[in-house]
Structure formats: C-alpha cells, structure tokens
C-alpha cells in the first residue's frame, strides 16, 4: 500500500458563490521509501497541497477529497496530530526556519525534548549524532552556533536534522534548494537521497525545477492549474511525457533545443483561480486541443507505470 494516497483533492477559499479554487482535482500517490516530485509552475497548487498534508491550511479553507490517506489513516481527521510526529517539513529558506536568537543546540534540544523522551545528557548526544548524519563535519561547534554563523547549506542541513529529530518518516520538502547555490543545492539533494536509503524515509519534493526532479526523484506528479495532469516514474515522465503540458514544459527548457534556436514557449496564461473549468484545464493553451477538450473532463489513461489525463488517444510506437 502507498504511504500517501490522495484522490480528487479540492481546496477552496472565499465565498461559496464565487470561490477561489486553490486546488481543483489533485491525485497523488507516494510509495514508501521513495522521493516523489510534485512539479508545477507558480499558481498550480503544489504548495497548498503540501500544506494540506501537514494540516497547516487556514481555517477558512474548504477541503474535500475522495480519498486523503496517510499510512491508511484519514488525514482529513488526523493531520494536525501527525504533524511533527510522522510528517515533518523542510522549507525553502532555512534562515527563516531557524530562530536567529537561539543557539542551534537549544533548538535541536527543544525538538528532541518534545519527541524523544530522552533524558538531557542523551539528548545532547542524539543531537550531535543527527547533525553528523546530515553531513555536518563538526556537530559540537554547530550546536554552539547561531543560525547566522552558518552558511546556507549548513543551515539547511540543520533544518533536515531537526526534521529527523521529530522521528518523522515522511518529509515534505518545499523547494529545499531554491535559496541555495547550485553546488550546495546538489549536496543537499544528495544528502536527502542518502537519508531516504539509510533511514527508510519518504520524501515529497515540491519543486518547479526539472533538474531537481531528474536528479533525485524516483517518481513525480505534474500539476497544472490545481489538477494532476500526469504522474509516473521519473525516467518515463521525462523521457516520454504523455500530457501535452508536460511535453510543453520540457520543451521550454533551454537545453531542449540547440544553442541560439528559439525555445518552445507556452502561449497564454494559466486560468484564473476564480474560473469555472468545464473541460481540460490546459485546453486553451494546448497545441493539439480538440473541441471535446473544452467541454468534457479528460479521461484518465494508464499504460502501466505512467498515468495521465487527456482526450488524445495514446499512439504507440
């Protein structure tokens, strides 16, 4: 059974008559012990979906779903109690996630105190061990430091160590490398990959960066305008994308064409969150859109380890 199983998730804000559709129809299925990418451009609902998993949505959000399960538990009931015990979060900006006026040691200890039940002297050893596990060379010095004395990469490692300290087995990483330099970001991804293997973790990697997905995700889900449009194993998804949006997104990358040639850009804009979408959300911008695409919801298609929603018949060969 998958660790996370979400079907038909919808999240709305605002009035009943004119709601803001933050998430319209998201399906997400994450296997244990894998890194799963949640890909999409701004406004596609990827961060909001992650917040729903954490139980961090504001009171005003109206959430509905056909299925919203974590390890068999219905998250619509228990999300708040799982946050910090089984589900942890790594955010984009590690500097903002750490308290600037407390030493790292104090912050690690606070987490361990509320989660481990260890006595004080053992907590200190545990904190050192966790920091060492995230590849920090001198955990004792780090424990005595303040956040601003550490580099961005070291801060992100401390945040990861804190997530491990909660004992969580599922980590939601929201753009964990965007604020970091390229080489440092690559190190953080490598660390996450190693931790997933060593500690049987599961990671949901929220990102807009195809390189990050290619680099570290076993599988991925592509969102567009609050809809899941395609999901599957990363190699399949990147090598043979089925949904026209995924195809267009990959074609827009600067390395998709020879140097100096024009990039394939997607014309038009994402639909407004107020819009009522009858057919396929991508139809107005899709190069191969047909009449039916604007009228009816596209069917779900599946070719074994790869599923997508589109009216176009899959062509083989």
């Amino acid at each position: 059974m998958s660790l996370v199983e979400i079907k038909g998730l919808s999240i709305r804000f605002g009035s009943l008559h004119n709601p803001i559709h933050a998430v319209r129809r998201v399906d997400l299925s994450i296997e244990r012990g894998t890194i799963h990418g949640l890909i999409g451009e701004s406004g596609c609902g990827k961060t909001i979906s992650g917040m729903a998993l954490l139980g961090l949505l504001p009171q005003s959000a109206r959430v509905s779903a056909d299925a919203f399960r974590f390890d068999g538990l219905n998250l619509l009931d228990v999300a708040k109690s799982l946050r910090g015990r089984r589900i942890a979060m790594i955010s984009q900006d590690p500097a903002a996630a750490l308290n600037p006026v407390l030493r790292i040691g104090r912050q690690m200890d606070d987490v361990l105190k509320s989660h481990s039940g260890l006595p004080r002297f053992q907590r200190r050893a545990a904190a050192e061990e966790l920091l060492a596990a995230t590849g920090l060379a001198d955990p004792r010095r780090v424990l005595k430091s303040y956040a601003h004395q550490l580099s961005g990469g070291m801060q992100q490692r401390v945040v990861i160590a804190q997530a491990l300290a909660t004992g969580a087995d599922f980590i939601i990483a929201d753009e964990p490398t965007t604020a970091l330099d390229v080489t440092v970001g690559a190190q953080v991804l490598a660390l996450l990959k190693r931790l997933v293997q060593e500690r049987a973790l599961t990671v949901l990697m929220i990102t807009h960066d195809m390189d990050v997905v290619a680099e570290c995700c076993d599988s991925a889900t592509v969102l567009y305008a609050g809809h899941t449009v395609e999901a599957g194993r990363t190699d399949e998804l990147l090598a043979a994308p089925r949904h026209p949006y995924t195809q267009a997104l990959l074609a827009a990358l600067p390395d998709a064409v020879a140097k100096g040639e024009r990039l394939a850009s997607i014309e038009g804009h994402i639909p407004s969150p107020f819009a009522v979408i009858e057919g396929c959300p991508f139809a107005p911008r899709c190069a191969s859109a047909m009449a039916v695409c604007r009228q009816a919801k596209p069917p779900e298609r599946d070719d074994g380890n790869h599923c997508w929603t589109c009216h176009l018949e899959p062509h083989h060969g």
Partner: peptide, 30 residues
C-alpha cells in the same frame, strides 16, 4: 519555466533587432 522561455526568446529577438551586446549573469547553467 514557460515564462523563462518567452523572456529568453524575447531577448534573442531584441539582441538581433537592436544589435545589442549582453552581459548575462546567472547561476542557471542551462
């Protein structure tokens, strides 16, 4: 990404039309 493609195409067009020279600073190697 899709907007980035539009902007990069625009810059390529402008460079050609206006004969610009560009100093392009980035950490994105692609």
């Amino acid at each position: 990404i899709s907007v980035q493609a539009q902007i990069l195409n625009l810059l390529a067009d402008l460079k050609q039309e206006l004969g610009l020279s560009m100093l392009f600073v980035t950490h994105n190697l692609k």
